[in-house]
Every structure is written in structure tokens, then in C-alpha cells.
Design a protein around this nucleic acid. Sequence first.
DNA 1: CCTGATCTTTGCGCCAGCGCAAACACCGAA
DNA 2: TTCGGTGTTTGCGCTGGCGCAAAGATCAGG
Lengths: 236, 236
Amino acid sequence: MTTPAPALIARQLADTELFAGLRPEALVEVAAGGRVQQLGKGAVLFTQGGPADRCHALLEGRIRIAQSGTGGGQLIVRFVGPGQTFGTVALFTNRRYPAEAVVLTDSVVISWPHQDILELIRRHPQIALNLVGIVGARLREVQERLREVATERVDRRIANALLRLADPGRAGGEGAVIEFPLTRRDVAEMCGATLHTVSRVLTAWEKAGYIATHRRRLTIHRPEALRRLAGENLEH
Amino acid sequence: MTTPAPALIARQLADTELFAGLRPEALVEVAAGGRVQQLGKGAVLFTQGGPADRCHALLEGRIRIAQSGTGGGQLIVRFVGPGQTFGTVALFTNRRYPAEAVVLTDSVVISWPHQDILELIRRHPQIALNLVGIVGARLREVQERLREVATERVDRRIANALLRLADPGRAGGEGAVIEFPLTRRDVAEMCGATLHTVSRVLTAWEKAGYIATHRRRLTIHRPEALRRLAGENLEH
DNA sequence: CCTGATCTTTGCGCCAGCGCAAACACCGAA
DNA sequence: TTCGGTGTTTGCGCTGGCGCAAAGATCAGG
């Protein structure tokens, strides 16, 4: 694997959530310290419980972050897309990854050692502010999901899961495509259901014309129908 | 209400998670900008969906943070104890509180306006690092709870909820007391169950001698029994 | 000490969603 | 194209935990 030109990497880093707002020369400095890896489908970046020694950002591809419990039950924490940071919170808590990261579609990952990222933060405090925003937004979303799983019915949870996947930035236009492979099991593990129940619900929605699946890609044709099913919150 | 001496406040702030590690003169500066409030039981500090304009820290007392959904279902996000920060993440995301804060036992709260806290962070970057650690730890815990609610049985969830309440710092000694009033409904809303189910389970545990309740205070007599029921994870 | 309000316990019926199982569809590799 | 593996659908029975209801216990306030 040839190492790409730092200048090119720096330009990509400008679009990452973690390094947004940094000046170009700072980005070059950040890029210089990063290790770029190309990873094929199925590759494991880190495992649950393993020592957290690096901070990662995804340049291309898609990665699944999942946590498994004692009973074998799995929960998909989130899907990481290009520009997003992952495996970083662990560096600031107990230095152990609380979940595993598996490559879903061929990916390009850049990462920095723990010490380097601390040094970068010291030199560019904006990174720490970005990090607070990133982690804060994630905390907010996970709390919302927790409330849902604790208080709402399965179909609502599934509807919300699909809406979140299709619309990470709360855009909400007409019909959206989830542009990466997604199994029924995946959806089930996102919202605390069995793949059987998910299958039944999705089949019903497919018959109703709300959604469609083709080659493992899911398209939402009637987002407003899903939002209604999800009990769309008016207050925002 | 007489405003307490800044020096006294500064000393208390040294023990808060948000300002840990700051030098004494920085603490005095922080204390000077803070507004101290004494609040009685039942007082509402902020409501869900309201504009987030201040960052709060609890000096004394206990506060309940709860989120309610469209269907009326409530989820207790956490109980805030002395030294803890709350209502802060909202300042770094969409400036709206995602949950409400209600005083459980008479409390003393100190808070700063949004602009001031940003300025304090700029002058003392350590605060941002503390914040990343705080929010990171919370994210980790909420993710763990989400997995539990999604994959584990009720009794396990209840056991885990009690263990977390008794042992915020993962101490794990012999028998612990949860030193603030806690209703069955509270426990239910912490782990996605009904108060009926919680009552049944807790009564059974009380008969088995694992726990005891007296005047709304709960004592854990056999933490190891609860840990066994919770399916205690060996890997740490 | 009394009173109303809140919290708790317990019984009983029910149902949303799970668990198992079997048939089928689809996909990638050779 | 065939073949094996993985994902999907669907039926059927069951049960964990909810929902309702009613009685009892406990608490705060006067």
C-alpha cells in the first residue's frame, strides 16, 4: 500500500467532524502523524474489551460498531460513515474499547496513537471542542434510543431506526436510500428486536409501499408514513 | 439568600468533575462567575425541550434527570449527586435540553451562562478535557444500559440498576446503601419496566435477604447475589 | 394524632413479541 | 451453471411481563 500524499489527506481531514475548523497548516500537521490503512470487508479494527491505544477516523467505506453482552445478545451501537470519528471516547475513559469495530464495505481508515492525539489537542484546542460536540451528539442520540427501547413498541423503534439510518443529519426530504448493505438481523440488533419480528414488520411496510429492498439496499419511499408510525415528535 | 464567599465556593468546585485539576486561582475565577441557587424538593431546574442557556453543577443535594416520550413513557436518565455536572451537553449540541431536571432532595446548584463557560474553557482548556471525559463516561454507561434493555431480561436490568445506584464508582465492597429516596416507579423508569414488575422482583429479593427497604431508602445486603443475578461480566 | 395523598403489594387475564422450525430466495465463488 | 452458505419469510405455540384493579401500607402536612 502506498502512503497517499499528506496534502491530499489533509484535504480529506477538513471534512471530518473531529478536525473541522482547523487551519490548513494544522491539518497538514495532523495528516502527517496519521497512519492510513485500507481494509477489506469483514476486517476487525478492534474488539470489545481490547486496549484502546488509537483514535480512528473513517475516510471511505462503512464500519459497524457493535457491543455484545454476557448472554450473547448483540447491539449495534452505530454505523460509521466517511468523515466520522470512532474508537476515540475510550481513550478518555478507561482505555478499553466498549464495543467491536468491523468493516462493512471496503474502507480507508486513518488513525493516531493516544499520545499523539493528546498532543494535537494541546496544540489545537479546537479539536477538544469538536470532540465535546461529537460525543455530546452521540450521547443525546443514545439516550433517545434508550428511552425508545424502554418505552415504545417494536414497530415504532424499527421506524425510528430506519429514519435515523436514512437521514443521519435530520434532513427529511422525499424518499431516501440507505446506501450500504443492511440485513434484517442488523435492524433487529439496532432496536432490540428479533430478526423475525423485523422481517414481519418490514414485509408489511413493503406491501404497503412505504419501503423497498433490492440487493440488500433499503429505500424509503414514504418517509412521512414512517414518521407517523414512529409517532413523530412535533417539538422541534 | 446570602451569596456564599467565593473562596468557599472555589474550594467546593475543586471537588467537581468539571473543574478538577484547575489551579486555585482559576477556581476562584470560575467561582466568581457562577450563580448559586438553593432549591427545595420538587423544584424544576429546566424542562425538556427548553432553551439551554446555562451549564450547571450540583454542590449539594440530589437531582433527577428524566426524559419523556410522545406516549407519556418516562425514562430516568440519571440521578445527579454532589460534584456532578448536568445540563451541559445541550450547550454544545442544539442548545435545547433533551430532558428535564427536578430536585429530589433540597439542593445547592451553581451555574454559568453559556458565553461565560465558553470563555472559561478558552482560558482553561483543562475544562474541555474534563468535559470530554465526563461525557465519554456517560456515553459509555448509556450504551451499556441500551444494550441491557435491548437484550437482557427484566430482573437482570433491575439488578444492574441497583448496583449502579449503590456504586457509582464501581467500588464493590460489602453491602451498600442508596442514600436518597427511591420509589419502585423510579427503578422501573430506570430500566424500562413497570412498577408492578419491579415491585414483584424487589419483594422477592427482600424475602431472599438480598436487599431491604426502610423509609424509601434501599440497602443492598448481598451485592454478590445481585451481581450474580445481573450476570456479572468477568472481563474487567 | 388525624387525614389525604402517594406508594406498594398482589391477583388475574392477556397479548406483543419471542423462540423454534421449516421452506424458500438470493448471492458469491468456482 | 451449479452449489453452498447466508439471509428471508412465515406458521405456530408459548411466555415474560404488561395492564388493570383493588386493597393495604407509608408518608407529609396540618
